[in-house]
């Protein structure tokens, strides 16, 4: 098996499995440890507060829109693109159809996927510059914050290059863009459970826990 087949086959499996199992372990660890050490959540548990807080923050119905409108709106757009493009891009769905699962669902138009990718990349660059140049954000940024932003943006950048043949003339880069695209996506999937990117799932538990705590006290959630 050459390197390409490895990246296309086994490594993809490994990446997805690490992503899924790793995420489940993160959740299980939180749940089991919290039932022992954060009993307060369960003593006062209320779905009402959990739902209320999740809805207000998944939809842009929260205080941040007023307090930090620019950053919040960019944050929402960033996350929408991040979720929608990989899942509903037609090229990806074709791969699922051809896979052993033969799964299929409808796609978004390629033109839209293109625009979303460009917007995503633009926001990613803005976030990066903000991290570098805004004194406050620079102070609280760790090395991993820069790294993870780049890791998250790379699959989009390489995906765009791949579908548009942007770098095709440039020997090594052009020839291997598909490899880079897969590798970068796999890297991201693998890193998710071990880093702050795990917030994609822990978000629900973190907001839920604080929603219970703040809701019962009558604070805004």
């Amino acid at each position: 098996m050459d390197f390409f087949s490895f990246v296309e086959g086994p490594l993809l499996w490994i990446a997805f499995l690490i992503f899924i199992i790793g995420s489940l372990i993160r959740v299980a660890t939180f749940v089991s440890l919290s039932t022992k050490k954060d009993k307060i959540i369960y003593q006062h548990f209320s779905w009402k507060y959990v739902f209320a807080t999740l809805v207000r923050w998944i939809l842009p119905l929260n205080k941040d829109l007023v307090k930090n409108p620019v950053f919040s709106i960019l944050g929402y757009i960033f996350h929408i693109c991040l979720i929608v493009v990989p899942i509903w891009y037609a090229g990806h769905i074709t791969l699922w159809e051809e896979s052993r699962f033969e799964w299929s669902w409808s796609s978004i138009p390629d033109g839209l996927a293109d625009w979303m990718t460009l917007i995503f990349l633009a926001i990613a660059i803005f976030f990066l510059l903000r991290r570098i140049f805004s004194p406050g954000i620079r102070l609280i940024s760790a090395f991993s914050d820069y790294l993870l932003l780049i890791v998250t943006a790379l699959p989009f950048l390489t995906g765009y290059f791949l579908t548009h043949g942007t770098l095709d003339g440039i020997g090594f880069w052009g020839d291997n863009m598909q490899l880079f695209h897969m590798l970068s996506a796999e890297l991201m999937l693998i890193l998710i459970p071990f880093t702050k990117l795990s917030h994609y799932i822990l978000f629900f538990f973190s907001r839920g826990a604080s929603g219970v705590e703040f809701g019962r006290r009558g604070y805004s959630i």
Binding site: K37, I140, K196, S198, H199, L202
Partner: peptide
């Protein structure tokens, strides 16, 4: 507890 560990880990800075 579990919350503290999670928070220290997921804070997106």
């Amino acid at each position: 507890g579990a919350r503290f560990k999670m928070w220290l880990n997921i804070c997106a800075h």
